[in-house]
């Protein structure tokens, strides 16, 4: 028993150490500005205040960035998951020339660094007159989100027993009918998981947003919040921490309600191949 208690203490102190920066983020965001610079620093705030959140929402562009991020990530997720679901079905359950090479291409692009594509993409989007638009980011995000989603869904699709589709075909369904009636319901957890990952990936993206957008109207949260850090003469850490917390809200929601989907996606992702 004593050993168990000791082990738990040891394990939990590591876990808490890992989580400390996140705890510190939340604590800082609710401390009044003057308390930040107190020495020694207070672990739990003496006075809890939400003034930074109010400032953030009322007096900065945060809400615009937030709205942009929501639109951007949602659209990207829908487009990518739609394309990838059909694509994965095709890659896993159909036979045609070039299928193997395509699967190879998907895996290759899954590993491809963004900086290789960014210069030509920048030139392309500028010449299309799309720079500084949310659409340009949706297009750019597809370059990493689509291979990622395809790869994930391919593995989920392979997990749906082939017999189910065969049974539906014998029972009189067409290929697409079998897809809708039988495969799609089985694939749903995988689709949710993939959508979640795609959304988080888009939500967190920084490089493309940095290069392709430099107007506040189209800027997503990542570059938007960083611009608040850079433009401020006097860095308001509380405000930045409040922004960080707000920015992590979708993630916290995902963790609270959809954690099993997150872990599932992990298995299907890179590791299992």
């Amino acid at each position: 028993m004593a050993r168990r208690v000791l082990f738990n203490l040891f394990a939990w102190s590591i876990v808490l150490a890992v989580a400390f920066p996140l705890f510190w983020m939340i604590v800082t965001s609710v401390k009044p500005q003057f308390e930040l610079f107190r020495r020694p620093p207070t672990f739990l705030p003496d006075t809890v205040t939400f003034e930074h959140y109010r400032t953030l929402l009322a007096r900065t562009n945060f809400m615009i960035y937030f709205r942009n991020s929501v639109i951007l990530s949602t659209v990207t997720t829908f487009v990518v998951v739609f394309l990838a679901t059909l694509g994965a079905y095709s890659l896993v359950r159909f036979r045609y020339r070039g299928r193997e090479s395509l699967a190879f291409l998907v895996l290759f692009t899954y590993l491809l660094p963004s900086v290789v594509l960014i210069i030509p993409l920048y030139l392309m989007l500028v010449s299309l007159g799309l720079s500084n638009t949310i659409l340009s980011l949706v297009i750019a995000y597809t370059t990493f989100a689509l291979p990622y989603a395809l790869w994930l869904l391919r593995s989920f699709m392979a997990g749906v027993p082939e017999d189910l589709e065969s049974a539906a075909l014998v029972d009189g369904a067409s290929r697409l009918g079998a897809f809708r009636d039988v495969i799609l319901p089985q694939l749903l957890p995988g689709i949710i998981s993939t959508a979640l990952f795609t959304f988080i990936l888009s939500w967190n993206e920084y490089l493309y947003a940095l290069v392709l957008v430099n107007s506040d109207g189209a800027r997503p949260l990542t570059t938007g919040v960083m611009s608040m850090l850079i433009s401020a003469f006097n860095i308001e850490w509380s405000l930045l921490m409040a922004a960080s917390v707000m920015m992590s809200v979708p993630l916290i929601v995902a963790f609270a309600f959809l954690q099993s989907y997150l872990t599932r996606g992990f298995g299907a992702g890179g590791v299992k191949g």
């Binding site: 890992v18 989580a19 920066p21 996140l22 983020m25 990542t222 919040v225 960080s244 993630l251």
Partner: peptide, 17 residues
């Protein structure tokens, strides 16, 4: 969950913190 969080949190948030 606590261990997993840093991986999913935005790099921007991680860097600010």
């Amino acid at each position: 969950s606590l261990i997993l969080f840093p991986y999913f949190v935005s790099t921007v948030v991680a860097v600010l913190v």
